[in-house]
Amino acid sequence: MNSFLAIIGRELRIGFADLHRVVTPISFFAVVLVLMPLGLGPSPQLLAKVAPGLVWVVALLAILISADRLFGDDMKEGSLPQLMTLSLALPWVVLAKMLAWWLMAMVPLAVIAPILGMMLGLSTEAAVITFLTLLIGGLGLCLVGGISAALTLSTGAGGALVALIALPLYVPILIFGSAAVEAASLGLAVKPYVLILLAFDFLAVPLAPVAAAAALRIAIDD
């Protein structure tokens, strides 16, 4: 457990030592949402209608921006082989890195999303659900994004390839996440959507690190 926490601590320390890693997804998210009314027009009805989907789509793309750095720097610096010689199994190392990524990228997004959502016309209830679903669904995005980042590591292609692999797996999270916010803004029940997002996390937490670790082993073996 100490090693697991040490890896999370290290990732956070690196994130704060290299601030643009943390700031880039947040600033992308904020800038796109702030510019959206300029592109769509100032109609409050229109903005309130598209806000749930918009917030979720932009959050998803913001996370993808930082995905290929999850393992890329470690591979370049040789940390991954070093971590593989430890007694801690590689899937635990991978899970620690994914959780740290979630803490650094997704939690700040979830915090500012309700404010930006309300600016687009979301109700207070919908804004609260936006925060909650981005926290829960965001974990799934980070776990799936981690598999994609690990799979593309040995290709050196990163970027577009990470998105191409991750996007189909992101679709269910996107659908249920934005549907929860939409339901909250219409005053409907959100619990079923939140439970589905939680179920996705419960599946992804044990499976995604194993899949990503297998992909990393192949990348290092190459």
Binding site: R10, R13, D73, K76, E77
Partner: peptide
């Protein structure tokens, strides 16, 4: 050869 330390820490 790559040592395995973070350049930023």
């Amino acid at each position: 050869h790559a040592l395995g330390f973070s350049e930023r820490l």
